[in-house]
Design a protein around this nucleic acid. Structure first.
Lengths: 236, 236
DNA sequence: GGCCCGTTTTGCGCTATCGCAAACTACTGG
DNA sequence: CCAGTAGTTTGCGATAGCGCAAAACGGGCC
């Protein structure tokens, strides 16, 4: 079983309020697994057997309709948990998780969850907070989809990605994992064609620089303006 | 302080696994409050001071944009909790709650939450489950908004309301609280005009019977067909 | 019984966005 | 270095649904 350095994870929200020796005990139950780029970590509908803490890389959680359309539920950044089916009382994973980059995750068997939360209530409390936060983010997303038009939603999505997983450059912010037009479409409820048109437009205005699975926000400030502009009033 | 009969609430999911005497202790910390139709219970953005368990009536939770547009987050049915800001670590309520009918709720001060969950871990566990379920429902809603067209979304919304708060009639199911075209629009991300057109169409086909703030599903089975019909067929 | 007000219905033009199809890159693997 | 393939761009209709405006409705209140 791979050793995990406690000092690397002690500061994560998941472990807030957990004593170092307790942390050690918790980590002893986990193993560390490497997922090469574009490998599935678990599939929607599969029996949930483990829960995860991402250490390196990026993971996309996506939900698929019976008809095969997908939406991206979220991108998981290092330090975040995912696959918490057990914690919320789901027997199957409600989405598919896929490494979009070479990734490493800590993985616990679900059977460890009841014991761990009983021994370390802070774990349960912290998890409750993150689930609550995700719920609020979902509601915000629903609000956006209901009230904003596509361009604003794409602006919001990119800004969120940038603040969550942006690499600061001399001049702009780069989203530091591969992401396609299709992915952005699935985050914002539109089509890859429309996303492509929007980004092309932005590119010609110098707002972004983008290529194959790569996006750099060159002028985040003006993108914020786009995101917040209120269609019901302003001039074009 | 009003007495609450434990037998009336003992079977609720919130109290699953809680012993009768413990339940008694929990209820002793709550008081019961009556909210007349169309009164606000709490406002989005207000400091969260209490959490609630609805006993009678119906409550609408809605989120408002800075620009004033609203969406309905959910309708709360009797037996469900709401206003759980404290549990998920939010200092302010993220939405506005309004009684859409004369309603009665149990109300606990947030200060009671840490003590109660410490003494009765089942409470925390049950709450985690319901929050998790709501998160999944949110994701489902996002999926629907991304992939379905308005008519299907309205069909889904009405079927959900019917199964959650439907009164069975000789011939059909009536949604047993007042709900306007506008409300349905805010649940499905469309406008009251479009909802009105859709319901008019359905009415002329005998699928529903509806009037001022009142909706009866006359042929739920055919509405299910509408909800599930797949417009295109493409995979993504 | 009649008036007032909130809700619902409906007509009509408009446009943001989709859907399809085709051309165009830019990596990847050999 | 080249071919193959996945991702991207773009043109051109087609259209679902919006937005405005006005009329019809229904019910409660005096």
């Amino acid at each position: 079983m791979a050793k995990v350095d406690t000092s690397l994870v002690a500061h994560l929200p998941l472990f807030a309020g957990v004593k170092p020796e307790a942390l050690d005990e918790i980590l002893r139950e986990a193993r560390s697994v490497r997922y090469p780029k574009n490998t599935a970590i678990f599939e929607q509908g599969a029996d949930a057997q483990s829960f995860f803490l991402l250490l390196h890389g990026h993971v996309r959680a996506a939900k698929t309709t019976p008809a095969g359309e997908q939406i991206v539920v979220r991108y998981v950044a290092p330090g975040e948990t995912f696959g918490l089916a057990m914690a919320i009382g789901a027997a199957q994973y409600p989405a598919t998780a896929m490494a979009v980059d070479d990734s490493v995750a800590l993985i616990w068997p679900n059977s460890a969850w009841p014991r761990l939360t009983e021994r370390f209530p802070a774990l349960a409390a912290n998890t409750m907070q993150t689930v609550g936060k995700r719920l609020q983010e979902s509601h915000t997303r629903i609000l956006e989809m209901s009230t904003q038009q596509v361009e604003q939603r794409v602006a919001h999505a990119l800004l969120r990605l940038a603040s969550q997983s942006g690499k600061k450059l001399d001049h702009g912010i780069e989203i530091d994992f591969p992401i396609s037009r299709q992915d952005i479409a699935q985050m914002t409820g539109t089509t890859l064609h429309t996303v492509s048109r929007i980004l092309s437009g932005w590119e010609s205005q110098g707002l972004v620089e983008s290529g194959r699975q790569r996006i750099i926000l060159r002028d985040p400030h003006r993108i914020v303006v786009l995101a917040e502009r209120n269609p019901g009033s302003g001039a074009a």
